[in-house]
Design a protein around this nucleic acid. Structure first.
Lengths: 202, 202
DNA sequence: TAATACATACCGACCGGTCGGTATCCAAAA
DNA sequence: TTTTGGATACCGACCGGTCGGTATGTATTA
């Protein structure tokens, strides 16, 4: 049996993620997490100093996973526009896989807007993502696939689009086919910054 | 002097808005609202049946105000692209005026993702906005200023952009000049859906 | 046996909401 | 004009319950 302790830790994290997504950070009690994890309160505070520490670890894992996914997609695409469209394409899977789990993203954001500790943990990867996209845009301009737009502005536009899509999919999951919407939206934005203006059917 | 009671109500609402923005809905105590409003707990529950009722009224006012603003901007613009750019242009004022108050937008969203009562109050105006933008896109296509894109998809793209911008400005207010970013982003998206493709310098 | 992993019992602070009572206001009566 | 009476506005002590976190004891592992 490998690491009983480690397994307990993971169970606590998984249970917490479910609770935070369903009820929100404040409205989730430590007792509820413990019950769902099949673990006592003592075990909880043995593995984590505070409730916030659990939240923070979930946040850090989530952000790290996101970063890896983005980098992998970029590396596997032949051109910058291709990479962007592929990222938009994976949105479908993301939305389906994370259905019901997405609200925790909102929870991450609203906590970050208030708690300086969580803000720091959030903002640093976020700025890396922004820089990552800006770098992609620059590369696209250099490779000739994009018009010479302001890379920072374009990166922000892409990020805004992505964040907005996730949020809408979170709050109104049945309001639209968000995977399709993601691709179409990215297609439109891309059309606005790509160099060759041959009309592709959207 | 009109209505002492009404003034008290307004003071409670204003105090609650500040608290919700600063601490979040759950973390805000009724006692804190009362203290900030200079009002007793009894007065609070005399004017509102529950804490949630206060939140709901703030939400409804906010959404109503947003709708009016959008309609006014649309009515005052000569063309659809003009209207969109003007809307993006007002972002600067919005961000500056609401600095520090923006987190309540996040609070609205995260509550809507959980509480069905608040979800209903949120989703109905939200869908109206979406229809409003879709109508604008159709009008733009009809007037010849926009390419024949899917109006719903374009409307969703615009909404995503707007939501994403507000969120980034909320979480990272000093991370960029969000007013400028809003204009540039909308400009790029617009470039992707407008008919005449003359290059405008961004 | 020493250290780690976990369980149970418990604490003080604080929560949203209630309640009995008081102050204020205004219309009608005197 | 003054009095009065009832409705409205407001107060603040208080309640049951829940919260995050702790203290202490027991089982498991090394």
């Amino acid at each position: 049996m490998r690491g009983r302790a480690e397994e307990t830790r993971e169970r606590i994290l998984a249970a917490a993620q479910e609770c935070f997504a369903r009820y929100g950070y404040d409205a989730t009690g430590v007792a509820e997490i413990c019950e769902r994890a099949g673990v006592s309160k003592g075990a909880f505070f043995h593995h984590f100093p505070t409730k916030q520490a659990v939240f923070l670890e979930l946040l850090e894992r989530w952000l790290a996973g996101l970063g890896e996914k983005l980098a992998a997609l970029r590396a596997g695409a032949p051109s910058v526009p291709d990479a962007l469209m592929q990222m938009a394409g994976t949105a479908q899977q993301v939305f389906e896989a994370a259905r019901g789990q997405l609200p925790i993203f909102l929870e991450f954001l609203s906590q970050a807007a208030r708690d300086s500790r969580i803000w720091q943990a959030t903002i640093s990867p976020y700025r890396r993502y922004r820089a990552f996209f800006a770098g992609m845009i620059e590369a696209g301009i250099a490779e000739g696939s994009l018009r010479p737009v302001d890379p920072d502005a374009a990166a922000n536009a892409i990020l805004s689009l992505a964040i907005g899509l996730v949020l809408q999919a979170t709050v109104d999951p049945d309001g639209a086919d968000w995977g399709r919407i993601a691709q179409q939206s990215m297609g439109m934005l891309l059309e606005g910054i790509r160099r060759n203006n041959e009309n592709l059917s959207i």
